[in-house]
């Protein structure tokens, strides 16, 4: 990493740390939501952009994490902090189950079966009133005191998000991450150099499920509610758009995409009921004109600046 990047990241983190000091309460909440959606989108990108896996229904892992955390908090007498570990672990375990069922299938079959199985989970959550609260969801979840104020919830979200991003960044840079990117580019070749493609993909799915679950548990802290729409398939496609908009071959792209979309949604929704229409049009424009996303575009321009002469001088 260059010095500029480190300085930039440091400055960014300091600004994020200072937000609650000068921003009104609503914006603190908004930034918390952006952070956890960014984490969610980044976890999706771990398998999508870096793994090349058609993870069409990622929201279900987010939902399982949130519900897992909530049910631990409301239905058991176990120490509350444990819930924030159990939720993500439940997501990871669920990622393993879905992975084992779907991993043998080819790309599009994988995605379509996953979206279908995820919808089953949604349907169960939606109907199981006695356990999940059905379509009402669960409100007023008792949060441990130290996390219950908006400010402390913000700081908790910030710290956990940054820590998770750091871990995912390490994973992408690790030999496992290299292998995963190799598999994305060429699964047959990867097999032929001795990589067990399916097992690597399975681990990636479990990891992505885990971090999606972390994002889900953060939502519980920030909003104190869960509801079935958190694992509805349309949310999954929205997260996919975040990755695409920010740039799905870049590490920070999904975070940027999440920021743009969550912020836009908040402000557009204040003026009109037709947010979906706006989002749909934005998506079409991105697909048509920015297929590599915002950061992908920037990187391309940036690279072109000093890559081209080298090629010509070949």
């Amino acid at each position: 990493m260059s010095r500029q990047t480190i300085l930039g990241l440091g400055a960014g983190i300091i600004v994020l740390l200072l937000f609650p000091v000068f921003l009104p309460r609503f914006y603190v909440y908004l930034v918390s939501i952006i952070l956890l959606y960014g984490l969610l989108a980044t976890s999706l990108n771990l398998v999508l952009g870096y793994g090349g896996i058609f993870q069409f229904h990622h929201a279900v892992f987010y939902g399982v994490g949130a519900y897992g955390t909530t049910l631990m908090l409301t239905k058991t007498g176990l120490p509350p902090m444990l819930a924030f570990i159990v939720g993500p672990l439940a997501s990871a375990a669920f990622g393993l189950v879905i992975g084992i069922i779907c991993i043998r299938l080819s790309k599009l079959y994988f995605g379509m079966l996953q979206i279908s199985l995820g919808s089953l989970v949604w349907a169960i959550v939606y109907r199981w009133y006695s356990f999940t609260g059905g379509d009402d969801g669960i409100h007023g979840i008792p949060i441990p005191e130290m996390l219950s104020s908006p400010k402390s919830a913000y700081y908790y979200t910030l710290i956990i998000t940054l820590a998770s991003l750091f871990v995912m960044w390490k994973i992408i840079r690790s030999p496992f991450g290299s292998a995963l990117q190799g598999i994305r580019d060429n699964p047959v070749r990867s097999e032929m150099i001795g990589i067990n493609v399916r097992m690597h993909q399975l681990l990636a799915l479990v990891l992505a499920g885990f971090f999606a679950g972390v994002a889900g548990s953060l939502f519980v802290v920030v909003d104190n509610t869960v509801f079935p729409d958190m694992l509805f398939w349309t949310l999954s496609l929205e997260i996919l758009i975040m990755c695409l908009l920010g740039g799905w071959f870049t590490f920070l792209g999904p975070m940027l995409g999440a920021a743009v979309i969550v912020a836009l949604r908040t402000f557009v929704s204040a003026y009109t009921d037709y947010w979906a229409l706006v989002l749909g049009i934005i998506m079409m424009l991105v697909i048509l004109f920015l297929p590599n996303g915002i950061l992908g575009y920037v990187e391309e321009k940036f690279k072109r600046g000093f890559m081209e002469p080298e090629i010509e001088g070949q």
């Binding site: 496609l237 996919l240 758009i241 695409l244 979906a276 229409l277 989002l279 749909g280 049009i281 998506m283 079409m284 697909i287």
Partner: peptide, 8 residues
Amino acid sequence: LLTFAFSL
């Protein structure tokens, strides 16, 4: 994603 945009 494009068809999803259309569905929205």
